[in-house]
Design a protein around this nucleic acid. Sequence first.
DNA 1: GCCGTTTTCGGCCCGACTGTTTTCAGTCG
Length: 573
Amino acid sequence: MQNAAVAAVFDEIADYMELAGENSFKIRAYRRAAEAVANYEGAIEDAAENGELRSIEGLGEATAAKVSEFLATGAVRYLDRLREEFPPGLLDLIRVPGLGPKKVSQLYRDKQIDSVEALNVALETNALQGVSGFGPKTIENIKSGLRRMAQMSKRLPLGDALLLAASIVKGVESLPGVERVEVAGSLRRGSDTVGDINLLAATNDVAATLAGFVELPHALVVSEQDEKSASVRVRPGIEVRLRATAPEAFGFNFFRATGSHAHFEAAQIAASERGLELREDGLFRDGVAVEIPTEAAFYELLGAPFIEPELRENRGEIPAAQQGRLPRLITSADIRGDLHSHSTWSDGVLSIRQMAQAMQARGYEYFAVTDHSKALAMANGLNAERLREQAKEIAEVQAEFPDLKILRGIECDIMRDGSMDLDDDILHELDIVVASVHSGFTFDEKTQTERVLKAIAHPAVDIVAHPTGRILGVRPPYDINVPELIAAAREYSTCLEINASERLDLSDENAFAAREAGVLLAIDSDAHSARMLPNVELGVLTARRAWCEKKHVLNAKPTAELLQWLQRPEARR
DNA sequence: GCCGTTTTCGGCCCGACTGTTTTCAGTCG
């Protein structure tokens, strides 16, 4: 399947065209082509084979020809020419917050700055002083953008890490002697971002397995290797470490390689209370190593049942396990619907009908159509009039899907003053209102908090989406007082979202606090295409880290209960 | 560059904020 590779070609072309100052509609055409290919449900090479490229919406004569060229030759000459014209570092520079194509090409033209490194040097030596358009505030913004970027690029968002790990696991499985390979470390615990990927292999030939591992195509550089493990860098800043162990030692090593460090230390204390010694190299009774074939066997020795990896953060899981009060963690199978999704009415790529098909294919009982509201003009946000038009289409599609409840909703912008982007009368007409912030990210904490508190208290608002505004690897949360949001959500019976797309917002820590406070959570995909629906599983991992059971999650409720909850007038007004 | 129930040209994704200006360009969502 070459869809992602072809989409990357079009995106790269669009990036270069921005630098070249090309017509914005032409650039947009390439972006759309990238999206069309990425979201195409089949393999793009099959479409090319069958002469169906031109029937894909968003591909025209020029872009379809480039798809064919890429599939035939592995390259696109047009892109090759662009690559010769501009240094590749300029593409990194466009991604620095505060820099766009115009400023980047100016820096390149006037100061020959062609990479993030060169920009850092220029900033350190004050070389940008006096460059027109680069005043003190702009320079300060660029510096803080660079700092944020450097911080975030060291860690991989959970979704990306899972994909990368899965492909490396496949490679390791094929190595000599390997019986079993598992992801361990923070990735197994479902951390929102991971620094390194840890794998554990049970093998009959440790040396051969490790030797094969460092030769896998993923490995750019071998950074460490001893007789038990090897680390390779698979992309800048991202290391994959494989520990190899004899099959009979897998249980203990799986526990140890999964962590967290804090959990390990808590387990050491629990072990010593039972006359055992837990060390890095094993569990010992009177100096003799205890055989531990499985993780369950290990926890049993601590007087506890198996502890799910997502709980292993020393948030009280060991005593809870010993006392038989571990939560029955929510699973993906408990999710009965999606309460935050987009269609072509705003910036989604699928019609309501297509979204309904995709939701039904996932086995959902219900979903909410929550397109953007009018303040998000760039996303073609809806006003009251268009929302009422949309109701007709929803009713039509609903008639075709008797087993799928389609909720009429909106993702309504929370304005700068905390008011809603749409009037109360239209909001009360809807089945569900999801409220969210898409502007004013730089407000101070007090202003930002008060603004969102107003939304939480609004009688029409059911869910506040992505409450802290972060996007993993892109943007940190804005300054906002989460405990105050949680208290208000509890008071007004408003649900808070775990946005499961590239945000994972609420974070696990915040979701943990919300659940403890008795606030209901919604795990939503925020899908703009069918491809994004499975992201909900990342949100489930986050909810599990927050000790959530299905009773804590709004969209784990059956349809009737959900509809009843959406009524909840007594708590609201 | 794509698209077409106004079909081979002309419209398409707009509005606000920021910082730098001296009336606006660039960035962002």
